[in-house]
Each structure stands twice: as C-alpha cells, then as structure tokens.
Design a protein around this nucleic acid. Sequence first.
DNA 1: TGGGCGGTGACAGGTTCGTGACAGCTTTAC
DNA 2: GTAAAGCTGTCACGAACCTGTCACCGCCCA
Lengths: 223, 223
Amino acid sequence: MRILYVEDATDMAEAVAIRLSRAGMACDHADSVEAAEDFLAVQSYDALILDINLPGRSGTDLLQSLRARGDRTPVLMLTALFTVDDRVTALDLGADDYLVKPFDQRELEARLRALLRREAEQKSEDLVLGALSFSPASMTARVAGDPVDLTRREAALLALLLRHRGQVQSKERLYNGLFAFNDADVGLNAIELYIARLRKKLAGAGVTISTQRGLGYRIDADG
Amino acid sequence: MRILYVEDATDMAEAVAIRLSRAGMACDHADSVEAAEDFLAVQSYDALILDINLPGRSGTDLLQSLRARGDRTPVLMLTALFTVDDRVTALDLGADDYLVKPFDQRELEARLRALLRREAEQKSEDLVLGALSFSPASMTARVAGDPVDLTRREAALLALLLRHRGQVQSKERLYNGLFAFNDADVGLNAIELYIARLRKKLAGAGVTISTQRGLGYRIDADG
DNA sequence: TGGGCGGTGACAGGTTCGTGACAGCTTTAC
DNA sequence: GTAAAGCTGTCACGAACCTGTCACCGCCCA
C-alpha cells in the first residue's frame, strides 16, 4: 500500500511515516501542495493524507483539483479546526474522512485501513483465501487458525497479492507498493526474494503463488 | 506499448531504449525531427519522448505540427532549460509532461508510466468474448473464470485481437503491435507461431481465431 | 499439379527467476 | 549499554522457461 502524506511539519511527518512503514505501508512525504503534485505526476497512491493548513496553496486546493480531474483516490483530511462547517466543507469537496489534530496515531492507522478496505470493496476486515487468512490490522496471517510468523515486508507483500487475488501483479507494481522513494536503491530483485520467502512460509496453506514470466505474480487457492 | 524516443545523443538514446524495453515497452529511436516524422508516417505510438534541442528543426516544431493535425498522442518533453516560461510554453503547445536534463532514468520511466496509465485508464475494462475474458490491467486471461497462463507476447497478441474482435487484423499490423523496429530481424512468421500457441491455449474457450488467407486473422465467438 | 501461404514440432539462445550464502542494520533482551 | 537475534537486501550462479528460427508438411486456389 502506497501512501502520500502532505504535511509541512517535517518532524511530525517523519514520525507518522515511520509508524506507517512499520505497518507495512510505503509512505512518501510532501511538504507542500507543489511537491505533492510532483509526486502525484509520477506515482499513483492508494490513499492521501492531506493537511489543510499548508504554506502557500492550501490542502483543500489540492483536493479540489484532484477531484476536478476525476481522480478518486481516497483522501483523509487533517486539520486543527473542529467546527461542523469545516467538516462539512471538506467532505463536500470530496474528502473521504476527517481527523482533527492532535490525533492518536493508532486512530490514523485505523481510519486509513478503513479507507483502503472500502476501496478494495472488501466485505470483511480479513483477507481469506484457501486455508489462509490475513488480518491487515494486526498484519498477522493464519493457516487453518494457526498463526504464521511473517515479517513486515512479507506481510505487506502478501496483503498486496491477496487484495488482487487471481490477478497477475507485475513486479514493478508490487515494488511500488512495498517501497517508497526513500528506499531508492533497492533492487527489483528484492521482490523475487520475498516471493520465495512467502512461498516457503505458506507451504501447506492451500494457496499457490504462481509466476508469469515477464508479467508478474498471482496468488490463487489450490485445487 | 510502443514508444518513439526523439533524441540526437545516440548513446543516451540507446541506454534509455534498453531500459524501456526491459520494462516491456517497444522503443524506437529517431535522431532528428525528420527521422521522427518518417517513423510517425509508418507507425502509430502510445507515447512520444521528445528532446527539444535537436540539430535542424527543434522538438517544439514537431510537437506543434503533431497537434496541428489533431494527433493527441501523449508527449513527454525533455530539455536542458529550466525556466518557468519554457515549461509553460511546452505545456501550452500540448506536451503532457516535462522533464529537465539531466534526469534520473527511473524518473523518466515513472513519468512515462504515469502518462500511459492516464491514457490507459479509459480503456482498461475487461475484454469479454464467449467464455473468454481478458483484463489488460492485470494481463490475465480467464476461461469460464479459470485463469489461463499466457506469456507476455501471447497476452499482447490476444489483447490486440480482442480490441478489434470481428475485424480482420493484418499480420503486419499485429507484428507492429508486438515488435519494435529494433527487433528488426524477427520474422513475420513469428506471428503465425503465436497465433498457433494462442489457439492451443484457448481451446474450449468458446472463441475461434480464424485465418483469412493473405489478409490476416480475426477472433470471434463460436456459434 | 504446382506455387504460395499458413501450421506446427523441435531446438538453440537468451532472458528471467529461484535460491543459498552473506553483510549491514535494527530491534530485542539482558 | 552491550550482546544476541532477526530482518533486509545484495550477489552470484544455476535452473526454468520464453522466444524466435528452421524445416517440413498440409491446405487452398489458380
């Protein structure tokens, strides 16, 4: 899951980015609307976290132009204000959710997960395939009820695959979901490595990760 | 995806072409506006990468005449200049994006992908025919819901046929969609080969690829 | 009946992928 | 604060598979 966090307070942005990456999300940080637009020109995101109070152009500006050009990426708005009016304005402009500063990081993560789930049109919180079930909230996997120890990256990769079960996901796409621009020099080859590690840990889970040479990977239930 | 890269620095062009082809894009290289127009007369492209500083006629010339004759192919401009004026000029002439030299190759790829994605989002719905469905986004084919493993070339060929279902596609046309001029030494015969492989893999899919001798191939639903 | 075009099996070459070993870094435990 | 454990990502080499050629056969049409 790739997130863009638009926020001018750098220290805060870093703290959030670290927590999110710990939760398996690749998070880029833009400190202005202009910077955010550069990121958006180059990379597509699964969600945006958008501070309203920015130096120069405001966050609502960005949201408006996003929606104007038909971009439906889920947006979570942040603000220090609390009036009902502001809330309504933000939602009318096309924000999907709203959080008042200061906020609890766990709440941010939870709301983000909710947005992403809505986007993927998942019925339930957990992703289930064969005997395997995965909970994005706790980043834990279970095979027939027994927990499987996955590392952060392994879990993030599994989540990406499961969200698009049955569809081939290109290596580049998985790479973009796993790594932010910060981790610039990581080789594409790392994906192969994590696929191998996942396959090993998920042996007997009733699922198969198959390789389409030159195209990517796909997860399916056995049988 | 077929790209035309207009650039007079041959060594640089080659490096870029290699990287792009590794990313699955067929990339032709023209070293002048005149050469580019020869390519464009003969072949249609999914995107153009256009250096502004060329010997003889400049890149903006080419862009202008393209747009003047109604060609909306996405264009990514390259230049050594950095002024806001140049940027605005290029965008006003109809360039879709803009990159300043020297640039990072990964950024070029990323921006190109973004351009192509924007273009592709409109036509990325699944192609359905008989019991066969193909999703261009994930390059996945299914027969009655069961995935069929296709290689990259097979998938590209199937997509071409399905986009023009019921119409005869000449062998040359299919060839041009699959190969760049660079792969010059690939025989036309390769198309026959891939048609054969597709027929084999799609047996029982409720579709038929029929041969029109001397004309080309056509895909239809059975019955 | 012959010429041209398309179909197909086998094969060589090249690319992509899988995987074990290893080094750097972070986290955890004491 | 230090040591141990574990996670991450690189490298290199071998295996698997895609790719396109060749050769040969069959079919269609004049």
